[in-house]
Nucleic acid binder design. Sequence first.
DNA 1: GTCTATAGGACGATAGAC
DNA 2: GTCTATCGTCCTATAGAC
Lengths: 188, 188
Amino acid sequence: MNEKESTKDKIIKTASRLFQIQGYHATGLNQIINESGAPKGSLYYHFPDGKEQLALESLQVTANFVLEQIVEGLQKSSDPVIAIQNLINDMAERFEKEGCKGGVPVASIALETSLISEQLRNACQSAYISFQEAFTQKLISSGLEEKRAIELGIAINSMLEGAFLLSFTMGDSQPLRMVAKQIPVLLE
Amino acid sequence: MNEKESTKDKIIKTASRLFQIQGYHATGLNQIINESGAPKGSLYYHFPDGKEQLALESLQVTANFVLEQIVEGLQKSSDPVIAIQNLINDMAERFEKEGCKGGVPVASIALETSLISEQLRNACQSAYISFQEAFTQKLISSGLEEKRAIELGIAINSMLEGAFLLSFTMGDSQPLRMVAKQIPVLLE
DNA sequence: GTCTATAGGACGATAGAC
DNA sequence: GTCTATCGTCCTATAGAC
């Protein structure tokens, strides 16, 4: 394996965390360098297009991580109601363990950059679509009609993102918990 | 009436719009002054505590506007399913008329400031609670049991906020429309 | 690949005249 | 109530040595 990639990876890992918690504009490149412990001079070597490129690659790491959580969570039960409920509750638990201050995965970058960088907006959109398709796929494979599964995938994704946003703002995972509780009703 | 308040009001009105579209950190005080057409020297006279105070008062204006939309929308039909569905569809229509670029009302400030200003976080939280209580109240007054109405108020609010976030990021009101479509299922 | 130094600009905030 | 000038700080980005 390439040990040489570890500097770039350290930068991306720190950037992902900071962008998610603080947002795009509030996170400076200096802070990323300092907190990552990466060599100060290496940023523009690894990311020649600057902050936007760094944000893009960081976002993709974050999005892949979340998607993996979703896909793996959905595999744990064949019953989609139980699977989705457990997934959201697991996310709520993780969120609580971060002191309800872990930020909102994709949203923090999406809100700040969608109107100023088509590239970043597009990456956020792709991330959201991948989430909703994971839900849709689960519903289809458990026998739901495709059209209905697509509708529900979008709705469940909306609920999840909204509940994350509310839980973060309130510093309380209650919205996530409440949304999980409505899944049986929604999938009736 | 006091014609003298018009300068402060102009500043707040412009700030509300810009904070909502661009976010907190991306919106400079200079831009607010320039676009509002307000006298340049008057900002720190009207808002001695600076940007944070301006954001706070702007947020309250935005939140009151949204709450009014919700309350008035919910009054238009006695059937809560129809009322909520129409409300969300009206919001989707308004969003489309802004070219799907109108920003996400409270979220843009909530995400950027919740961890750096307890005052602003608290104002965002109050705004969200007022929204969810409007839904809950509507459900109670149409005969739903209180405990269930509270749960649903939170869930509907989550769906709405999430759908706004997704619609904004995708530049397409589809998530808002899909969420509206699920209301009958949720309230079954 | 890494480092230092710095350019060049924007920002929030303040002081003091009017 | 308004205005101008300015301070100090932060930012992104670049140039050039090593």
